[in-house]
Every structure is written in structure tokens, then in C-alpha cells.
């Protein structure tokens, strides 16, 4: 059996195309498993995984937890807002305290870019990055690729546009890297103030007109506008954002072709996407959620079975 090239999953950047294909193929098997009457397999029995979330998350955490349960892993959950940690204990101390209780693997979400990479230099356990600042969110990108592959049979040659706040988005960066490694063409679309100045250097197309972007693509991945993250205003109002970048049924129906709509959730209905689009036949948003469990099972299974645990 093939092996992943790294014992952690810190970002898509470190993965080879073979790594990604291996994860997607393994996820195929687990997707079959979770649709059986008995959804649980003993693959990670006696493996203990800590889900450490320094930032709020509902669905990513739920998805990881469910994936762990389906694999028969033992789970502990640790939630701490970054502020409570900044009151004293360092990240390394927090994690080492958890590891001292004999934990094999860490799934971590953290508000700062590179936190997983930093941690990997200081601790022994395997680490899965469940989102670090605006850097990477590798399992989201993998499940998005899995969902596109499921819909079209292959990711290579597909045109994918990522719409929204590219500047603050870890989903965007991981998606760009993952889709490119699989041979897709990627465009980013959003307000000029929410576009990294050097994004073109990553080999993506940049478009500021939503209709043009949609006419170009096969798949549109609509990012959540995360107003709560902004300390300063990058656009005047949600209303104006919707006017320029909100996807509604009228625009969707006016396109020459039938494109596929994705969203990493949670959806702001009526902001980046209207209800009738989210619930339309073109939307694969709920498939993404289902696939997320299979993909996360694949990642944890591959890492735990291919590399020695601490």
C-alpha cells in the first residue's frame, strides 16, 4: 500500500498529488462504510485522539468527532478560546499537558497561521490541522476536491471559482493548492479589498465581476463572509456585498450552463448565497458535509496506520 509522505497533515502545501489521490481513494472506501447499516469499523481501536479547538467551530469539530467514532478511536475534546490561553499557559504547555495523558494524535484548530507547524516542531504526537488562521484548512480542501470528483468523475481540467473573502480565508488557500495539484484551473473572485495583492503569483485567475466568474466556471465555491473576523471595514455593508457578490437564482438561471454550487458552511443565507440557490439541485452543499466525514476518516486512518504512534 502507498504511504503518505508526511506523518502530519499540516497543509495541502506539503502533500504530493499522490498523497491527495491516496486520501481520496481511501475516502471512497470509507464513504461506502458510513452508508452501511453498521457504520463503525475497528481501524483506530486503542488510538486516542484529542480535538483541540482554540477557535469556535461546530461543523468541523462535529465532522472530526464523527469520523473518529466511526473509526472506533477514543476521543477527548478540549475547547479554549484563544483569550483564555493568552492569560497564561502557552500552546506547547497546553498540548503537552494533554499529551501527558497518553494521547496519540492531535486535531487542532487555532486562530494563528502556522500554529500547527510550530507545534509539530515541539511535540511528538501526529497533528492534523483543522484550520490555522488564514493559512490552511487541508481537510476542507480535500473534501471539496472529493465532492468535485464525485460530481464530475475527475478534478483535472475542471474550472473552479472561489468567491468571497480570499484575504482572510484558509479555505481559499488550501483549495487553490489542492485543486491545482489535481489539475484543475482556479479563479478567485471577490471585493478588491479582500484580495491578497500577490494572489496571481499562485497561478490563479483573478476576477472582480461575479457574473463573469460564474460564466467561466464549472464549479463555484461560495465562501462565508465572516464579518465577526473584521477589525476594520473592508466593504461598506453586508447589503452592498450581496449586491456585488451574492449568488441568487436569477443570476444562476441566466448563465449559459449549469454550474455546481459549493459552500464550506455555515451559510449566511441571503448574504453570499440565497436560499433558493443553496437548496437548488445544482448545490452539493450537503454532499460536502457527508463527504467531510469520509475524507477525515481517510486522513486519520492513513496517518495512524502508516506511522508509528508516540
Amino acid at each position: 500500500m502507498q504511504q503518505l509522505s508526511n506523518r502530519h497533515l499540516l497543509g495541502i502545501k506539503d502533500l504530493t498529488e499522490n498523497d491527495i489521490q491516496l486520501i481520496l481513494e481511501t475516502a471512497d472506501n470509507f464513504k461506502e462504510v458510513i452508508n452501511r447499516p453498521i457504520k463503525k469499523v475497528p481501524s483506530l481501536r486503542d488510538v486516542t485522539i484529542a480535538n483541540i479547538f482554540f477557535e469556535n467551530s461546530t461543523r468541523t469539530k462535529l465532522s472530526f468527532e464523527l469520523a473518529q467514532k466511526r473509526l472506533s478511536a477514543d476521543i477527548i475534546n478540549f475547547a479554549a478560546s484563544s483569550s483564555s490561553v493568552s492569560k497564561g499557559e502557552t500552546l506547547i504547555d497546553t498540548v503537552n499537558n494533554i499529551l501527558a495523558m497518553k494521547v496519540d494524535m492531535i486535531v487542532m484548530r487555532h486562530p494563528y497561521a502556522g500554529a500547527g507547524i510550530f507545534l509539530s516542531k515541539h511535540i511528538n504526537a501526529q497533528i492534523i490541522n483543522a484550520g490555522d488562521g488564514a493559512h490552511e484548512h487541508p481537510t476542507q480542501a480535500l473534501l471539496d476536491a472529493f465532492s468535485i470528483r464525485q460530481k464530475y468523475g475527475d478534478v483535472a481540467g475542471k474550472k473552479v471559482v472561489i468567491v468571497g473573502d480570499i484575504l482572510h480565508s484558509r479555505v481559499a488557500l488550501s483549495n487553490i493548492l489542492c485543486l491545482q495539484k489535481l489539475g484543475a484551473e482556479v479563479m478567485v473572485c471577490g471585493p478588491t479589498t479582500l484580495m491578497p495583492r500577490y494572489i496571481k503569483e499562485l497561478g490563479v485567475k483573478v476576477e472582480h465581476n461575479l457574473r463573469k466568474a460564474l460564466n467561466w466556471c464549472d464549479v463555484a465555491n461560495m465562501l462565508r463572509i465572516q464579518l465577526e473576523r473584521f477589525e476594520i471595514k473592508y466593504f461598506p455593508s453586508i447589503r452592498e456585498y450581496s449586491m456585488m457578490y451574492g449568488l441568487n437564482k436569477q443570476i444562476l438561471d441566466s448563465l449559459d450552463k449549469e454550474i455546481t454550487i459549493m459552500h464550506p458552511g455555515p451559510i449566511n443565507r441571503g448574504v453570499e448565497i440565497t436560499s433558493d440557490v443553496a437548496d437548488s439541485k445544482q448545490s452539493i452543499i450537503l454532499e460536502q458535509v457527508e463527504n467531510g466525514v469520509a475524507v477525515r476518516m481517510a486522513v486519520m486512518y492513513l496517518l495512524a496506520s502508516q506511522y508509528p504512534l508516540v
Binding site: 497561521a113 502556522g114 493559512h135 491578497p196 500577490y198 503569483e201 499562485l202
Partner: peptide
């Protein structure tokens, strides 16, 4: 500069960090 910590460039884009132009 805001609260950015690194130079604005290709590296900051890969790091997912805001850049100081």
C-alpha cells in the same frame, strides 16, 4: 501596516498572513 507581521508578497500569500506593504 495594521497588525501585519510579514512583508506583503508571495510569501505572505502562501503563509496566509496579511502583509506590510
Amino acid at each position: 501596516a495594521e497588525k501585519a507581521k510579514v512583508n506583503e508578497g508571495v510569501t505572505s500569500t502562501y503563509l496566509g498572513m496579511k502583509g506590510i506593504p
